[in-house]
Design a protein around this nucleic acid. Sequence first.
DNA 1: TAACAAGCTGTGCGGGTTAACAGTTTTTGT
DNA 2: ACAAAAACTGTTAACCCGCACAGCTTGTTA
Lengths: 359, 359
Amino acid sequence: MWEIHSSEKIRIKDIAERSGVSVGTVDRVLHNRPNVSKKARAKVDAVLKEINFQPNSYASALAYNRKYTFCCLLPAHDCNAYWTEVEKGLRQCVLNRGDFHLSLFTEYYDQFDELSFSEAAGKLWEKQPDGMVVVPLNLEVTQTFCTKLQKAAVPFVFLDSNIPEISPLSFFGQDSLKSGHFAGRIFMMQAGKDTRRILLMKLMSKGRVASSQQENREVGFKSYMAARHPDCVIVELPLQIGEEEHYDTQIGEMLARYPDIRHCITFSSRAHILGEYILQHGLKGYHLLGYDMIERNAECLKQGAIDFLIAQHPWKQGYNSVKALFNHIVLHKTVQQYHYMPLELLTAENYMYYIADEK
Amino acid sequence: MWEIHSSEKIRIKDIAERSGVSVGTVDRVLHNRPNVSKKARAKVDAVLKEINFQPNSYASALAYNRKYTFCCLLPAHDCNAYWTEVEKGLRQCVLNRGDFHLSLFTEYYDQFDELSFSEAAGKLWEKQPDGMVVVPLNLEVTQTFCTKLQKAAVPFVFLDSNIPEISPLSFFGQDSLKSGHFAGRIFMMQAGKDTRRILLMKLMSKGRVASSQQENREVGFKSYMAARHPDCVIVELPLQIGEEEHYDTQIGEMLARYPDIRHCITFSSRAHILGEYILQHGLKGYHLLGYDMIERNAECLKQGAIDFLIAQHPWKQGYNSVKALFNHIVLHKTVQQYHYMPLELLTAENYMYYIADEK
DNA sequence: TAACAAGCTGTGCGGGTTAACAGTTTTTGT
DNA sequence: ACAAAAACTGTTAACCCGCACAGCTTGTTA
């Protein structure tokens, strides 16, 4: 009924013919090399304009015969499955492009130590990267480094959180505010509008919320709650990272103190802490919403201890970050600037297809 | 902290050197062509065994310098946005691979006419396809055609619904049973467990449910309802395709007859029929769940007339089907056999990121 | 020993990049 | 006005890597 053909391929040879010059000259125009007269350049440009020439990226990459170095700057993470997934994605993308000579170097910084960011950045800088994946810290320290990259014409993409002032080649992440809002909608639909008290578990590190994502989602959530459920009280349960041995008693005390609470939410990826507590103590009637499809959460989902997870596609974020760099740098393709991951809701009924989708 | 490099590339030349023969001989061994002595083959095989050679797919595709014809056999669809999206995906995948010479031919068949399937298949067969995307009809007629393809060693992928007996190269679709189950879970969570009556809108064509997807989802849904909400009555509202002028009165009569109904579900992509009715008549308090992120549904979501949509990623299904053929046929890469699309829940809060994810 | 085939090597090709080189035109300085 | 220098242009060749075929070298058979 209909047919489509990949457009007739125009080669450098064809352009040369059409504009009445040699391939050498066309090549010089295409690569902005010197020694082309105005006339010749004009003729070639004219032809280029009307045909929208796109060189065969693969023949081109083959001929370049270059090695490419990508670098990646991430926050340190001991046991955080989210970042591990990101790294798997980064790595897989490099491995899938084995026909090109790619290298990927990764360094870590401490989220609460600006100096460590600069140090790690410095180490990567010495690798003379052709492109970078950066998880930004704050504006100041990130900008200092990125300006350096921009001056050296090294493209970089932001992952996880964005700083629009420093315009990166591309951004991969989730809209945390909207995410919190969405979480609120689902969470309260299940809780019902007569619920008077809910529990918010927060993961803390050195007295602060452990990640900016967590913080932003909470803002989105609270604005939703203020607008739609102003009478519902949000009871907070802060848990310190590194003090895992106290969690059990802290949770126990909290649930004892507010026996009417049945609905718990967290914006961290550790909903399983509550989920496992519920399973171990054989509690019934509790409903949990959390983030991230990591193994311990998945297990709770399966066993019915967690009702909902919101997925962020960390693997995809990592994979696509490197893919964007590759497309831009190696294949000279244009890449989209913003890539917001879908806000995906996972339950016991559908989580297996989430996993299947990640390749 | 860690680094990764795409593995040292071994070329045909290297293998030739190592095994003391010429590249031509290596090539013949690799492609199982005749005229290789046992000795030479043994030497080459020995080297191949120890190094796990993977040819540069792009250089290879370049050297083949072949044109590839893909064909696609779809059910006819006048105004069905779902299939239009599938087609856009198919097309985009071909366009994105402009560096190779691909052609795509599409033919349509009538879902209720087996003969039309065979006819359309026959037309495509004459194009001598290198690979096919097929949306199966029933086992019999599909098998007849696919056996022909298999005999001619033409790989094919199934899209939308699978027939495992005919083992295709790959399958792209959604698990309709689980999908119905998932829909039930979300739908009843919103309705609440005290709901006594719900409305099920069914799209009919020539006296039958208009698509097998719809039918299967309904089965999944009803099994969920029987297990979890046995006391809830499902009132059915069948609407005939082609009799759009009657819809308004049919819906009106139904709602008048069951004034207690507040929750409606459909397994077709036409939830907007109900949504638009609700908006036009300024009704309040109705809750709808439907399928597919098509424009009219999206509008209803935005306006609050539809609460939930379950997405099937039709664009992705189309895109990935062609991609699988391409990877297999042109790049000689291995492809996964089953690709179940995620069961993704869309609401007014998150639908915009679903759209953004489709590239 | 001629005839023939099997076995193997060498080479050109696909499309683009790069460099060297020779030949042409234009610019510059006197 | 004229030589010298600089700028421009076209040609050729090597290269990336794998594919495919022409044709050369063996070995076998009549």
